[in-house]
Design a protein around this nucleic acid. Structure first.
Lengths: 211, 211
DNA sequence: ACAATATTTGACCGACCAGTCAACTACTAA
DNA sequence: TTAGTAGTTGACTGGTCGGTCAAATATTGT
């Protein structure tokens, strides 16, 4: 019943992601989003009770796509080191695409948003924290596999190390955003990540060399 | 000549640092800053041509203090590993103090500001980039000393590794801010940093064990 | 045909935004 | 004394902010 559903809701979410990712939450107005999405303001507030709610739903939408990718990259039948390699490639590739689409390096939308709104909007800060934990689970499982394969120190605190990996990637992406430059990500991220994890040089190459 | 100078200018800079560090650039208005500093708006614009100029001067002020601390921590007569240890202690301590003073973990003001305004204000983004390079110089010099002391791999790309260290610390501080939690910083930063640098376990302790 | 519902429209609101300005005050140098 | 200047004051502007609303418009089930 009721009027035919349109894709206005999706258009708003998509547009919000673009604008907020490129600029920032507070720099983008509801009017900006509506204008770019071609949707009237009244419709905006028909779908979302507030700007913050739109941001939350936008994050949900974005994280869902991410998780799908992560499930694939971190599937158990990929050798553990290869999972991290895939992830690094994915991150680099995604940054390249978004940079081409939006005109500058944008970094990690969750980190940028979380950092901006940490003290301003509890709901958003909490959601970002959730997303982070969600991702570190993949890292931790993989680190455990690396321990079991004898590739990294068996005394590794995998929970702590997973958080470190996440923070490291966030830091690299923030810096790439600030400097508007991807070259460092492209050249060094994988090697730096392996250093942090404690993968010895002999394992940098193919995992097939090992049992 | 003219009227007796007041400390209004300094009050504005100090207040701006507090408010913007705690919240964000766009979340804090000129009126907020004036009100908290007890300065009239007209006086604000007597000292600063715009809000962005105040932010720039605030960063200058803040970085100057930082550099003074870094000069001391990274002085050549401190053993290189000890320099990093001092820095970790300094960062942790500073975060604790600011957290107690402002009521929450605030992270790195440059990274937060840089990330927020990367696409919005070129001047500020550029200044942040400058500050970053300034700090990595200390890291690079220290890494070089570690190479020469035989403590880390002599093939280390010290320039790249210095950038990695910086990004890693930025990431940790951003995450501490988002999660409003310092415990990870306190417990693991030093060890994680040494892993990233590639300091072998045998050097984790006192440097006196080595030549 | 008609009632119920879902969606759209765009004018409208008060609050707040960054920034302006002319008058005013306190100080100094001549 | 007085001219010049550095600093202060607070009312003011035009524009933008997030958000509201009543009316219009489709679409459905009955």
């Amino acid at each position: 019943m009721g009027r035919k559903p349109t894709n206005n809701r999706e258009k708003l979410i998509e547009t919000a992601l673009e604008l907020i990712w490129l600029e920032s939450y507070n720099a983008v107005s509801v009017d900006d989003i509506c204008k770019k999405a071609g949707v009237q303001k009244g419709s905006f507030y028909h779908y979302f009770p507030s700007k913050a709610h739109l941001a939350l739903e936008t994050m949900d939408d974005c994280v869902q796509q991410h998780i799908a990718e992560y499930e694939e990259m971190f599937s158990a039948d990929t050798p553990p080191l290869e999972r991290f390699r895939k992830m690094v490639k994915f991150i680099t590739q995604q940054q390249k695409e978004v940079s081409a689409q939006l005109g500058r390096v944008c970094g990690c939308p969750f980190a940028t948003l979380g950092s901006e709104l940490a003290a301003q909007d509890e709901g958003i800060a909490h959601k970002v924290t959730d997303i982070c934990s969600q991702k570190t689970v993949y890292y931790q499982r993989t680190l455990q596999d690396l321990v079991e394969a004898g590739i990294i120190d068996k005394n590794t605190d995998t929970q702590a190390k997973a958080d470190e990996i996440f923070a490291f990637i966030v830091g690299q992406l923030i810096m790439a955003r600030i400097k508007n430059d991807l070259k460092y990500l492209e050249e060094n991220l994988e090697k730096a990540l392996f250093d942090l994890i404690g993968v010895s040089q002999q394992h940098y190459g193919s995992e097939k060399l090992r049992a």
